[in-house]
């Protein structure tokens, strides 16, 4: 699936985003690195305020023409998207990068039929007649598993069920066959049986089209189901990057370990959960040292209190780096999952 030596499709280098507010500068993303090959799925995991959604907005160029300050490089096929103007970026949006959102009801225009909205996405990047665009939309509706697509073309978003709406949203995103699909919590608002259908659909379509997928989610279960690689974000920083197998088998960063420990599991024995104490740092005033130091159980193992004074780099083995002063945090976690 991943061709090891080929240039990656997407290469994010030291992405930083901050927003000026009345209370001061909010440092939403403080150093994000990510590499993604064609046909691959990477998960960006984090809790609220971790910067995962802002990262995805920066990738789509949605922060252009706003007060946000975005630095770093977002290389798509070698082209730095962050250096493009809003007008230049337009050629990429929908064509090379597409996005689906958490709440498909509010993400679709309530006044236009679903099919019309998909056809519109097609016509933006293809010089075709209305009729041909409509045909492409009907075809796409069929491919995402909407029964009787010709008739459903004229239905409005509010006439669809939640699952069908998300299918239509996926159709809208994939109608121009983008190379990269950003899915921002695509199943969070859905019921679990519908979530399973949508995740299956995404995997099937990905196998068909070879689109690379960035799955932004708070749910490690979703990551385990569909991703190849994972990036864990905390306080706007990428704190750990690994293949899915490695992350669950041997989580390196204490935050990742804490996240896994605090999740109740269907197969668990009902033992007491171990939550992460405390709260994430304020993005207005980031601590000087490691952003997780205040909540970390292992700071005592690092000499000279470095955790509180020096921010660790993303380091370690190439396939599994983490941002922690302990190269191999102790104690090793027992795998009960």
């Amino acid at each position: 699936m991943t061709t090891p030596h080929a240039a990656p499709l997407l290469d994010i280098r030291d992405l930083r985003v901050s927003f000026p507010t009345d209370d001061g500068l909010v440092h939403a993303v403080n150093g994000m690195d990510l590499r993604l090959s064609r046909g691959e799925t990477v998960g960006i995991v984090g809790e609220s305020g971790s910067g995962k959604t802002v990262t995805s907005q920066a990738l789509m160029g949605l922060l252009k023409d706003t007060s946000a300050v975005v630095t770093g490089q977002i290389l798509l096929d070698g082209q730095d998207l962050n250096a493009l103007t809003e007008a230049q970026m337009r050629a990429y949006r929908g064509k090379k990068i597409a996005m689906i959102f958490q709440d498909p009801l509010s993400a679709m225009h309530p006044f236009y039929p679903v099919g019309v909205q998909i056809a519109e996405a097609y016509r933006v990047h293809n010089t075709v007649t209305r009729k041909a665009a409509a045909a492409a939309a009907v075809d796409m509706l069929g491919r995402v598993g909407i029964p009787d697509p010709r008739r459903r073309y004229d239905a409005y978003p509010h006439e669809f069920s939640g699952g069908m709406r998300q299918r239509a949203m996926i159709a809208m995103a994939l109608v121009c066959e983008p190379e990269l699909l950003i899915a921002d919590e695509p199943t969070t608002a859905l019921d679990v049986t519908v979530q399973a259908q949508i995740l299956d659909l995404l995997s099937e379509l990905q196998a068909e089209t070879g689109t690379a997928v960035i799955m932004v989610t708070h749910d490690l279960g979703v990551v385990a189901e569909v991703c190849h690689q994972v990036v864990v974000m905390y306080g706007g920083l990428c704190v750990e990057r690994a293949t899915v197998a490695d992350l669950f088998k041997e989580p390196r960063h204490p935050y990742t370990q804490g996240l896994l420990d605090s999740m109740p599991s269907l197969t668990g024995t009902g033992e007491r959960l171990r939550p992460i104490p405390g709260f994430p740092p304020s993005l207005l005033a980031l601590p000087e040292g490691c952003l997780f130091a205040d909540r970390c159980p292992h700071t005592g193992l690092v000499p000279d209190g470095a955790c509180h004074t020096r921010r660790p780099e993303l380091a370690g083995p190439g396939t599994h780096p983490s941002r922690c002063h302990l190269t191999r945090p102790q104690p090793a976690r027992e795998v009960a999952r």
């Binding site: 337009r90 990429y92 949006r93 929908g94 996005m99 959102f101 225009h109 519109e120 995103a173």
Partner: peptide
């Protein structure tokens, strides 16, 4: 609104 963000994500002109 979210649908305005969607419209932008499609690559529509302003």
């Amino acid at each position: 609104e979210d649908f305005m963000r969607t419209a932008r994500s499609k690559g529509l002109a302003r």
